[in-house]
């Protein structure tokens, strides 16, 4: 990325992306919310506490401001790091401000805003060698779908343009990557991306990214591994030096 910076610039845009988790509230009953979220936190979902969280409500047309306020209070009380409220035409623009939250447009993200893989995919049982948090996806990941792995992510099928892979660890794609792959999304700079056929829209490791246009031509449509060296994304032949 080339950004021309004026002399003595008092700010700078960093080529970093911020990953946020979307918490999709199917109902706003604060008691069951409290109970279920604290349960999840006990079950080692501690990551919920440091990840920035965007709250989205399933039925904005039915959500009263009071219900929203108590739900948000409940979440804050549990230590969830709320940063924004997903925008909806049904929600008054003032609501997010009233809740002390930013406002974010998730576009048509109803099915994007899910940190679970498409129902049919998660299949870590059939992968004997996989570590506990490894997620193995055997079905194509389609445009508009998002797959999130707490550890490594292994994909055996094509990843379409408009699809997004996110992993706290490494990402392996034994097929064509046409969408986005973001490894080390919680800051692990040692994470890598391994890909059989690189045709990506974007690749990112620990927030350092390259868009399609900036991918080195020598590695396009080739088997590639990507890693981070300081701030720089490194590309290498997947099969080692040849």
């Amino acid at each position: 990325m080339t950004v021309s910076i004026e002399e003595k610039a008092s700010f700078e845009f960093k080529g970093r992306m911020l990953m946020a988790t979307v918490l999709y509230l199917k109902d706003l009953d604060s008691r069951s919310l409290h109970q279920q979220i604290s349960q999840r936190l006990e079950d080692a979902a501690q990551w919920l506490l440091d990840a920035p969280v965007v709250v989205d409500v399933a039925h904005p047309e039915e959500a009263s401001q009071v219900e929203l306020l108590t739900a948000v209070d409940t979440l804050r009380g549990l230590g969830v790091n709320l940063v924004a409220l997903a925008r909806h035409p049904e929600l008054d623009d003032q609501v997010a401000a009233m809740l002390g939250l930013g406002s974010i447009n998730l576009a048509n993200g109803r099915d994007v805003a899910r940190s679970e893989p498409p129902a049919r995919t998660g299949n870590s049982k059939s992968a004997p060698a996989a570590a506990e948090d490894t997620l193995v996806v055997e079905q194509p990941v389609r445009s508009g779908q998002q797959v999130y792995a707490r550890g490594d992510l292994i994909v055996l099928a094509p990843v379409s343009t408009g699809a997004e892979l996110l992993a706290e660890g490494n990402i392996h794609i034994y097929n064509t990557l046409r969408g986005r792959a973001l490894a080390g999304v919680r800051g692990n700079e040692a994470a890598r991306i391994f890909c059989q056929d690189l045709d990506a829209e974007l690749v990112s490791i620990a927030g350092h990214y390259r868009v399609a246009e900036d991918l080195p031509d020598a590695y396009r449509r080739k088997p590639v591994q990507m890693s981070l060296d300081g701030d720089a994304m490194c590309f290498a032949d997947l099969m080692g030096k040849s």
Binding site: D111, P118, A119, R120, Q139, P140, V141, R142, S143, G144, Q145, S160, T161, G162, A163
Partner: peptide, 18 residues
């Protein structure tokens, strides 16, 4: 093709069977 891909993804989660 891209829109069909999107629809295929939606079909995999938005049908009663799914």
């Amino acid at each position: 093709v891209r829109d069909s891909d999107r629809i295929l993804g939606i079909l995999s989660s938005k049908t009663r069977k799914a």
